[in-house]
């Protein structure tokens, strides 16, 4: 650094406002340059002179209470309530709105869709029992059934062997639910048959605890991007057990 550059930065140097690199560069220069060193000293004493001799005005007595009165007037209870609770109020309003939206969705959209789905599933199930169209692929072998579905539906429904739990595989067929072909896997439990519909949960996820309609029990859940809907005459407890066994097998 030459003298000119140093002089430009002498004030911030004296004030300790320079970055370390330039601070050190100037220190190095001052160690060798008398006139710049004197200039730096002049700035230091100038600053000290100002601080010592410049009058500092103190707030006149009474100003503090005037300020506090001004603030108190601004802080009238009604405004204060909104300022202090405004945020909470906004949250509450947002929450309320959200609940309304959810309730609306729940009340209008989902139950009617679920209702349709249930009606369809019930009729699918009863039709499968009445006409001789229970399965298109009669097999007790999970791999054979899985293979049969391959190419008939554009996803791969998990077919689980639940013989040990008391649910034997009867076979598979293609059925229609929600205007789309779905995989139907048929199990037998005692004398009763069980239809398990599986399809991708792309448009919506289904989740229903065990319920009954027209003498059938049914329940639904979603897992790994698929909707599962199973329906049967078996007891609610047996249906729950089926769900648990199946979930476990699929997860393995």
């Amino acid at each position: 650094m030459d003298c000119e550059e140093v002089r430009q930065l002498l004030d911030p140097y004296v004030d300790g406002e320079l970055d370390l690199t330039r601070q050190l560069a100037i220190e190095a220069h001052l160690a060798e340059c008398n006139s710049c060193r004197e200039a730096a000293q002049r700035i230091t004493s100038c600053s000290r002179f100002i601080r010592v001799n410049l009058p500092v005005y103190r707030a006149p007595p009474g100003l503090k209470s005037k300020v506090r009165t001004t603030l108190a007037n601004e802080d009238k209870p009604k405004f204060r309530w909104f300022r202090e609770h405004g945020r909470r109020l906004a949250y509450a309003a947002a929450l309320l709105l959200l609940s309304c939206a959810l309730a609306w969705t729940w009340l209008t959209l989902s139950p009617s869709k679920d209702k349709e789905l249930i009606a369809e599933a019930v009729s699918n199930h009863s039709r499968s029992l009445m006409v001789s169209h229970l399965v298109d692929c009669a097999s007790g072998d999970q791999h054979a059934i899985k293979q049969w579905f391959d190419g008939k539906v554009d996803y791969s429904p998990p077919v689980a062997d639940l013989t040990q739990a008391g649910y034997t595989l009867v076979g598979g067929r293609i059925d229609i639910l929600e205007q789309r072909p779905v995989a139907a896997i048929v199990y037998q439990h005692g004398k009763n048959l069980l239809n398990l519909f599986v399809w991708p949960a792309t448009s919506r996820k289904i989740d229903m605890d065990v319920r009954s309609e027209r003498g059938y029990h049914f329940c639904a859940w979603n897992l790994a991007g698929l909707n599962f809907f199973c329906i049967s005459e078996i007891s609610a407890a047996d249906l729950e057990k089926f769900e648990d066994e199946l979930r476990e097998k699929i997860n393995l």
Binding site: Y57, L63, V67, R68
Partner: peptide
């Protein structure tokens, strides 16, 4: 008030 009233002199100055 707790934060800012102590700076009243500075503000006035």
């Amino acid at each position: 008030e707790e934060i800012f009233l102590p700076f009243l002199d500075a503000a006035y100055n």
